[in-house]
Amino acid sequence: MNTKETRKKIEVCFSPYLFPLFKEEFEIIVVIDVLRATSAICAAFNNGVESLIPVSTIDEALEYQKKGYLVGAERQGKIVEGFDFGNSPYSYMKPELKGKSVVLSTTNGTKSINIAKESGQVVIGALSNLDVLQKWLSEQDKNILCLCSGWQNKFNLEDTICAGAITDYLVNTGNFRSEEDSSIAAKYLFLSAKDNILGYLKASSHRRRLKNLNLNEDIKYCLTPNLAPVIPVLNGDKLELVKEEVSL
């Protein structure tokens, strides 16, 4: 076990609004948007998508669409009219997407990716890639920040629980430390929820929003760990899979 002085940091930022308070301290930023952007991204790569371009605005998405890209766009949980799909993980499991480059713009997640990319290596985190991601992060020997996308710059439970799982795992390796109260809170939320994440989040605000849109199957997928064991990382403006093998 490393001493406190040599251990790397793993901390949690509850929302993009708070990111400026953290951004100078970390080499890897894990962007998390469990419901549903990062879960959809992991589903896409698990299905064989070659690369995915995350964009923040509908105007950017339209420009890519004009160039012939397949483009997903979501706002307020709904597919934006005129685009190929939204951010349901199931939209990215279609055989015709294998080997393709696609574009995605969402209410929260893709904005967080683009906010984070100037500050460090961006990695995509979700419950669906939790185990393989935790193992990979534990091998990096770098200071890591979990950036929760939240909902319109506000705190949410599902992203924080995912961040808490990552924090708990890395601290338990003995090679990482957490000092921020946000990280401690995230860890204990995860420990409270881990035996039944779906049930724990039954009353969460975004789960209610998606349920009202009849997206229950998306909810179940996104809150089930390890369905898409892939690690997407941002290279330039494109998300691609990490090159190295990760053995669990």
Score class of each variant (00 low, 15 high):
Lys154Phe: 14
Leu97His: 06
Asn216Gly: 14
Glu96Met: 11
Glu245Met: 15
Glu11Gln: 09
Glu27Cys: 02
Leu145Asn: 01
Asp237Asn: 14
Asp195Pro: 00
Gly82Glu: 10
Val233Phe: 03
Pro229Ile: 11
Ala37Asn: 03
Phe19Gly: 02
Cys13Gln: 09
Leu198Phe: 13
Lys142Leu: 13
Glu81Asp: 15
Tyr90Leu: 15
Phe14Gln: 08
Asn216Met: 14
Ile53Thr: 13
Val80Met: 02
Lys243Trp: 00
Lys67Gln: 15
Glu27Arg: 12
Pro232Arg: 04
Glu180Ser: 14
Leu223Trp: 08
Leu35Asp: 06
Ser192Trp: 03
Ile79Glu: 12
Asp84Leu: 04
Leu201Ala: 02
Gly150Leu: 06
Ile53Cys: 13
Lys94Val: 09
Ser183Cys: 06
Phe26Arg: 05
Gln140Glu: 14
Ile41Asp: 12
Thr57His: 04
Glu179Arg: 11
Leu234Pro: 12
Phe26Ala: 04
Gly109Thr: 08
Tyr64Gln: 08
Ser88Tyr: 05
Ile115Arg: 13
Arg7Ile: 00
Phe45Met: 09
Val30Trp: 05
Asn175Glu: 15
Leu130Tyr: 13
Ile166Trp: 04
Asn153Asp: 14
Leu201Gly: 02
Phe83Val: 07
Glu24Asp: 15
Cys222Ser: 13
Asn129His: 03
Ala163Ile: 02
Val171Trp: 05
Thr224Trp: 10
Gly86Ile: 04
Glu118Trp: 05
Tyr200Thr: 13
Ile41Arg: 01
Ala165Pro: 12
Leu18Lys: 10
Phe45Ala: 01
Lys117Asn: 12
Ile231Ser: 01
Ile79Val: 15
Ser192Phe: 01
Asn108Arg: 01
Glu139Trp: 01
Phe19Tyr: 13
Ser204Leu: 01
Leu147Asp: 03
Asn156Phe: 01
Val122Tyr: 06
Leu248Asp: 13
Asn235Gly: 00
Glu245Gly: 01
Ile197Asn: 00
Lys135Glu: 06
Asn153Arg: 05
Ile53Gln: 03
Glu244Phe: 00
Gly68Asp: 11
Leu198Asn: 06
Asn47Val: 05
Lys194Gly: 12
Lys9Pro: 04
Phe176Pro: 00
Tyr17Ala: 15
Glu179Ala: 09
Asp131Val: 02
Lys9Arg: 14
Val71Met: 04
Ser51Phe: 01
Leu137Thr: 02
Glu81Ala: 13
Ser149Thr: 06
Asp59Leu: 07
Lys9Met: 14
Ser91Thr: 00
Glu24Gln: 14
